[in-house]
């Protein structure tokens, strides 16, 4: 299935010039797996933050559906 991935914050540079990328992923794959298809392993990015799908907050192991928009943010921390 096809999904769209957008990166925000300091993660943006991982996609170079592209604002977003469309990727072909297996049915029922997780956000983590979809990012890996796009060349991003969140475990290797110390300031990887959170993800949202179609504007809703989800966790990295939540599953995707066809046509979903997956966004990932870099981390801020503070108070």
């Amino acid at each position: 299935m096809e999904i769209t991935i957008t990166l925000r914050g300091t993660l943006k540079k991982l996609f170079g010039e592209d604002k977003e990328r469309k990727v072909e992923v297996p049915e029922g794959c997780t956000c983590d797996e979809a990012l890996q298809v796009a060349g991003i392993n969140y475990r290797e990015i110390p300031n990887f933050g959170f993800v949202a799908v179609n504007g809703m907050r989800v966790m990295i192991d939540d599953k995707l559906s066809p046509g979903d928009e997956l966004k990932a943010w870099s981390r801020v921390s503070g108070g």
Binding site: R8, T10, P46, N47, F50, A52, R57, K71, W73
Partner: peptide, 23 residues
């Protein structure tokens, strides 16, 4: 470090996007 860069460049305004898009 690069991770803390946002503090010099944006200060606490960096939380606006994170909070808005984080719900």
């Amino acid at each position: 470090t690069e991770d803390n860069d946002f503090i010099f460049h944006d200060g606490t305004t960096a939380f606006l996007e994170a909070c808005n898009d984080g719900g």
